[in-house]
Design a protein around this nucleic acid. Structure first.
Lengths: 251, 251
DNA sequence: ATATATATGTTCGAATACGAACATATAGTG
DNA sequence: CACTATATGTTCGTATTCGAACATATATAT
């Protein structure tokens, strides 16, 4: 019963941005699911049976090389959907999706999503605009990987992550962050140590709290703002949806 | 008159992969345009008035940082289309499109493309599948930027480029390649020198000829094959179209 | 409370790429 | 032909990251 109050589809802003009519129709098909840390939602090349709309969780899209090294391509949180390859027509992608921050989300059967997409209405256009925003995130990751230091990338990663959560805290070991950023664990230790000394974050055994968000924004490379601006531009409805959600839940 | 024989829309495999009915309809709206080296087809954030279907040219999508440094996100050749943001709904993107290899292509008015996309038929699905293939290229670039050496990246870049041309030669200075890869010119000089010594390429003042394609494929990182495989998987029609083109033009 | 697994901190030599300076070579131009 | 702009080759010191080894600290289980 508590869960019914704590969880609602409109906590996912992509869903919340839909016109009432579409939202109601889709809502009836959604299924609330817990998303524990580390859960692999799909494997590279595997078939997707569901798409996911995270509400309180974050999903990391990452690519794993033959030698086991990895790199994060993008993150999906309560602003998005996991499983774009379904409506893009490819069915699969060469990357992996892992729950990076435990929480909940709603899932929708693949066939139902395709059906909704093929209606060609607001849902389709919203999904396509979201996909373009995701593309921006991916390309910016490529640029950032090329030109920016581990320090800057950690800041970007932290900001992108907490933006996709209600909270300013996240559970994540340095080892895992290193996997995401595609760098060594020691590199993350050093970078995080600097941020800690500067009083921007508080770090202890898999638990990070952002103490000074503005400070992080001063240190981060331009990549963060580019991604954020592009999401806001392409999906202005999300902000509106966000505000509505806040007022509905009375936060 | 010669031009009419040398140039035809079906040299762009994305167009050629369309059903006859759609191809004929769209063909009537296309306009052949020369695409000189270095031409900027669109600027970051700028509005697109046309989409481009390259036939004998290659277009580079690159992102330019505030400090002037740059990195290539993806390349578009005769297998694709420039301007996906139009049908994705964003209208603009934060990247720049530059002609990387001079040649020709066909352009189509933005409004007409959107109209075709919104028919929801084969054209829409082809464009979406192409977009997914492009996403793979972008994400693989991100991974490659993180984990692979300049040497390997140069091989990848060369292979991706000649795949998008009929020829095994391209006109491109080391300086420009460095801009694409987001590395120093000296780095490219060194890497290209090694390939030259190994007899894999012939390099001289802005003109590269691939002498031993198989040799390059042995040296390249896995990223090249991942992108190629994904294009073939998502767009099998392109291969078929390719063969038809060869027989039609009698090459 | 003790043992153990896990997380974080620290150090050091090696490898790679950077930034800058300069040398050489070739295409075009007058 | 000589001149000039451009392209490529080479070198050297520096910075960053890597890879590996090892030290310390904290949570969890018994």
């Amino acid at each position: 019963m508590t869960q019914l109050l704590l969880h609602a589809p409109h906590q996912n802003f992509l869903l919340a941005a839909l016109p009432e009519e579409d939202f109601v129709r889709i809502k009836a098909m959604l299924e609330l699911v817990p998303m524990p840390l580390g859960q692999v939602l799909y494997e590279s090349g595997g078939k997707l049976h569901y798409v996911y709309f995270p509400t309180t969780s974050i999903i990391s899209l990452l690519y794993v090389l033959e030698n086991g090294a990895s790199a994060e391509i993008a993150v999906v949180g309560n602003e998005g959907i996991l499983g774009i390859s379904l409506f893009m027509g490819g069915e699969t992608t060469p990357s992996r999706a892992v729950v990076q921050s435990a929480g909940f989300g709603y899932r929708l059967k693949a066939s139902l999503l395709k059906q909704e997409f093929n209606r060609g209405g607001p849902m389709m256009h919203l999904l396509l605009r979201y996909t373009q925003a995701l593309i921006t995130q991916m390309t910016q990751t490529a640029v950032c990987n090329r030109h920016h230091s581990v320090d800057q990338q950690l800041c970007r990663w932290l900001l992108l992550s907490i933006d996709r959560l209600a909270s300013d805290e996240l559970s994540m070991t340095q080892e895992l962050i290193a996997n995401m950023l595609g760098v060594r664990r020691e590199g993350v230790t050093e970078a995080a140590g600097k941020l800690q000394k500067a009083g921007l974050i508080d770090y202890s055994r898999g638990h990070i709290k952002v103490l000074n968000r503005a400070g992080l924004e001063k240190k981060v490379c331009e990549c963060y703002q580019v991604v954020k601006t592009e999401f806001d531009r392409l999906l202005p409805d999300l902000k509106r949806a966000h505000h509505q959600t806040l007022s509905k839940t009375g936060i």
